[in-house]
């Protein structure tokens, strides 16, 4: 287990470095930064001075290393637009996005895994068909559309939920539902397919042959193996949820990372964009480590010696 954990951490660190290089290049490749910073009417000397001040005349490698050094000290630069510290900007908004993503992930899992299991028990039954139908709908309807629909229904018609802002827990209900709706099909299909697969496996037959109750067979023997793929994919989906929050946060005017990134892109505020890319990517990498560890805990084959 120890060696496995260390290996996963080293892999994760390597990916983080790669991601940071990409994030760095992302901004470099958007054109001449000095020109971008100085604006169109800056004189040639002004641009040259900017270049020197910001170290833009150095080699790529030098620039990257000094940038990476600053990042490691928590200095992600300043917003071109508001001159605020980027890290502060992000840390202010992170809790909103995190709450939203975690809530919608949990909601998605809580609905789709039991549903998937139930579908697998009676494939092609009425419940299975309706769930599959719903999940097709889920994939066909874009999340902003679902969000607007929810606003119309609960915010405008029934007036039971706030339609924007982050004042109370209730404000998160509709955004989380919207995002959960978005991940539901994936989890449903995975847990259903995993469960159908596992239920037809030889070891389930063995468990039944022991005369165990159907509940034990399902929950002790089948579920644990069936949700392995769900655990791996859940982290990937969480990354999508962070991405999806861009849309949902703007629909519900939640002041989260998504909204921040959206406005930064519109304003070509590169330091902010860069920092969001970097931080989201690192969160993503860390989540992958978590999912590997979860998988390892669920599947002894991954860690024990032959």
């Amino acid at each position: 287990m120890g060696a496995y954990f260390v290996r996963k951490l080293i892999e994760a660190a390597a990916v983080c470095v790669a991601v940071s290089i990409i994030a760095f290049l992302l901004v470099q490749s958007t054109g001449d930064l000095a020109v971008a910073m100085g604006g169109l009417d800056a004189s040639a000397e002004d641009t040259a001075r900017l270049r020197e001040v910001y170290g833009l005349d150095q080699s790529f490698v030098q620039q990257y290393l000094s940038w990476a050094g600053r990042v490691l000290h928590g200095d992600l630069g300043q917003s071109y637009f508001s001159q605020e510290d980027v890290l502060t900007l992000i840390l202010e908004r992170l809790p909103v996005t995190a709450t939203l993503s975690v809530a919608s992930l949990l909601l998605g899992l809580l609905i789709s895994i039991p549903a998937g299991v139930y579908c697998a028990m009676k494939p092609d039954g009425w419940f299975d068909r309706s769930c599959l139908g719903l999940s097709v709908l889920g994939q066909a309807m874009p999340s902003y559309w679902v969000g607007l629909l929810l606003i119309l229904l609960f915010g405008v018609t029934f007036r039971i939920l706030p339609i924007s802002g982050t004042q109370s827990a209730a404000s998160y209900v509709m955004p989380s539902l919207t995002l959960a709706w978005f991940v539901f099909p994936v989890f449903l299909r995975l847990s259903r397919a995993g469960m159908i697969d596992v239920l037809s496996s030889d070891y389930i037959r063995t468990a039944r042959a022991k005369g165990l109750s159907e509940r034990t067979v399902l929950f002790k023997h089948a579920l644990r193996n069936a949700i392995l793929p769900v655990v791996s994919v859940a982290t990937v989906q969480f990354g999508f949820l962070l991405g999806g929050s861009i849309v949902v946060e703007s629909v519900f005017s939640l002041n989260g990372i998504g909204l921040l990134a959206w406005s930064a892109i519109q304003r070509s505020d590169y330091p902010v964009v860069q920092a969001v890319v970097l931080i989201v990517a690192i969160i993503f990498v860390l989540l992958n480590v978590v999912s590997d560890l979860l998988n390892a805990a669920l599947d002894p084959r991954l860690t024990s010696e032959q």
Binding site: D202, R205, T206, P300
Partner: peptide
Amino acid sequence: IAMIFQEPMTALNPAWS
């Protein structure tokens, strides 16, 4: 009545000791 099966490789649950 107890039963044993053909495939020893897959007849045991990989997740339990």
